[in-house]
Nucleic acid binder design. Structure first.
Lengths: 269, 269
DNA sequence: TAAGTCGGTTCATATGTCGAACCGTTGTTC
DNA sequence: GAACAACGGTTCGACATATGAACCGACTTA
């Protein structure tokens, strides 16, 4: 691992849940030496990627990331094209909605939207989405490049007792998703979270990401599932269109089948 | 310069004007070896900071920056607190408005807003703002930490014939800004751009950034100057409040003086 | 076909990185 | 208020890692 890569991974330890990190704490989290971590943070600081809270000396993300995000958004206006549909999706379903984007072999969170309808709701605080355990990830496996399956196979971490634990289970799951057009993760990443997702495509016609709803499992009913699925289709069509893509006919066909013949999908638990 | 820092500086070469950069091109821009540049771009790519345009193989900013920006905004919600005031400012003045934030010794652009009123308008596409040549930068020198002046002194690059070229000129300029409460840069960064700015403060009572209007010089009149100044005050108060700060009494007093006795500031040209 | 570009790769060299041990400061404990 | 622990930050020799000239094959141009 290059030194630059090591420095960059430090950034991934910041999250909304842990926005500020001290030097010693960062050493423990990153599992690296203090001197090394310090120098890396220094480099990140001079580049504006982190800054220090002047009173606590803890590090937090710096203003440079805001600029880069603006440039990225001007280059590939994904977020802008996803936000309105996401808001509507969260509002109608009453659950937390989010969008992920595929870059290389990694599925990144782009933005999310919590619904104000319930006090208890799923909170998305992920840097990257595991391919085998989340609805978005499974969507990527089903509709994205085939190489992704190898990546997923190599990273079959068991998050819960419902996480698909071997290649065969995963392949079965992916096949069913190809048939229905909807990604589905029943408490396979976190217990108490039911995920449903739909694939998004870019101008080149390739899988570009997924739109998903993370639903509190205890609220999940067949009726809600139907609602979420029809709303997902609406949101997915809109976002795909905003990204300059079109939904492939076979996906539309799968959606139509799923919605007209609501098969009671085998929910593992 | 650490290897990590070198890799990070590659990112700063992306901008809205130049959103995609090929390998050879990046070597030329960054002035570094091709092999090194390639490895750095690889590291950045695996971390998600850049991605490759699949057809041209050119590099562009990746999705990871979007996430980091979200975390940053959740940590220090600056952009959200500035955007509405900025929009109003651009709308009323008819010129391009922007907000900068100070981190360490560097002034970064946070967001900007172009006014649709005119076909010709200033476009802000800066990574970092030179302290001695921009209205925001001069504001930082006048109201920010005193160490900044040393940094500015050491970087007196002459962008135009109106750029303050020596320490004495700069000090005079800064003094006049302290007296009026408004930063001012008359074609000292780009010819044809008149800048006016006002300081912003955070919860700790320290200078946190500036709100500024970049005005097409040929449209600049004393009347417009008055309009911009009064609108800047409104915007600065609002943003400072949203950032959890309060405008120091001496700044308010300076603003009041400037607005009631509109002195015709010596415009260098 | 020959010369120019491009993205990407190789390998000997030496430069920048690594981590144990060490500061000085701060805040807590008794 | 002395002893202690944890913090952010620094030093230095050993050595892992970055470096860049030269090279490769693919592609464009003339």
């Amino acid at each position: 691992m290059s030194s630059a890569a090591k420095a960059l991974t430090l950034l991934s330890h910041f999250s909304a849940a842990r926005p500020e990190i001290g030097l010693s704490q960062m050493c423990r989290i990153a599992g690296r030496d203090k001197a090394t971590t310090y120098r890396h943070l220094q480099a990140l600081e001079t580049a504006g990627f982190v800054e220090q809270n002047p009173v606590t000396k803890h590090y937090r993300l710096g203003p440079a990331v805001m600029q880069l995000a603006q440039v990225r958004e001007a280059t590939v206006p994904r977020k802008e094209g996803a936000k309105p549909a996401l808001t509507a999706l969260a509002d109608v379903t009453g659950e937390t909605a989010h969008v992920t984007v595929l870059s290389g072999d990694t599925l990144y969170g782009l933005c999310d939207c919590e619904s104000p309808h319930h006090g208890i709701r799923a909170v998305i605080d992920l840097n990257t989405f595991p391919l085998h355990a989340t609805a978005s990830g499974l969507c990527a496996l089903a509709f994205g490049p085939t190489e992704l399956f190898d990546v997923a196979k190599a990273n079959l971490k068991e998050f819960t007792k419902f996480t698909p634990a071997n290649e065969v289970d995963l392949a079965t799951l992916v096949d069913s998703i190809r048939a229905t057009g909807f990604g589905r993760a029943n408490q396979s990443y976190e217990t108490e979270i039911q995920g449903l997702s739909a694939p998004l495509f870019d101008h080149s016609g390739h899988f570009a990401g997924a739109v998903a709803v993370a639903c509190v499992a205890s609220r999940f009913t067949p009726e809600l599932e139907q609602t979420i699925k029809s709303e997902l289709v609406i949101a997915a069509r809109e976002i795909t269109r905003n990204w300059g893509g079109t939904t492939p006919a076979e996906i539309e066909a799968a959606w139509a089948r799923s919605l007209s013949h609501p098969m009671t999908l085998e929910s593992t638990p």
